[in-house]
Design a binder for these strands. Sequence first.
DNA 1: ACATTATATCGACTAATATCTATATTTGCA
DNA 2: TGCAAATATAGATATTAGTCGATATAATGT
Lengths: 111, 111
Amino acid sequence: MSTVTAATDLQCCPPITEAALDDETAHRLAGVFSVLGDPIRLRLFSLIASRPEGSCACDLVGPLGRSQPTISHHLKALHEAGLVDRERRGRWIWYSVRPEALLAAATLINC
Amino acid sequence: MSTVTAATDLQCCPPITEAALDDETAHRLAGVFSVLGDPIRLRLFSLIASRPEGSCACDLVGPLGRSQPTISHHLKALHEAGLVDRERRGRWIWYSVRPEALLAAATLINC
DNA sequence: ACATTATATCGACTAATATCTATATTTGCA
DNA sequence: TGCAAATATAGATATTAGTCGATATAATGT
């Protein structure tokens, strides 16, 4: 089971305008889009993306006005969609954007 | 009320990595992503995008195994998100992808 | 005018999901 | 070893959203 490759797989897809998507591909890609389709998750993603050095999860709980479990839940979704990397550093967990994920989404669209 | 400009507005946004999104912008952009976050809508979008001359709504009902009202509902969502244009031609309605929408989404990501 | 065809809206039902509180797990430190 | 801090999981709840059948609206042609 590969739960962390959805977004990076996009890189290998033909642009969306080239041919109609089959059902399986559509499900996979829609999964990535829907992860970015929640305002809190999108803000989390942009917070992480705006720091090249990555972000400690502990710094992501405060700014968005949601509980710690809710932030944790959304970070998990971002990670499982392949949009962010995570790394444990002692007691903290650091999140960083997967560059391929950004490129992938752009490629998907039509770049 | 501008219901048909969300996606094209993306064009004017700095790339998502540049600065963290504010709440309002995140809501607006997440709205566009969530529209593409449904497999049926994404397939509709790709069906429309794969035909430069546009697609008659009547040709979009059959292929996806959903009822006519459901397809109509999704087409409305795509239109209101600014992702597709619609044009009445007699009894039929023709949908076409807004080129700015594709570019916009790509720009948003990081292009 | 009337029937037919294409599309949209309405109302209801169901499934998915965002959220919370409470609790468990993991790690570092004294 | 025991305590505190950081993160994750579990369970419950409320809202959202996808779907359908029935029906309304709009346009065409006879």
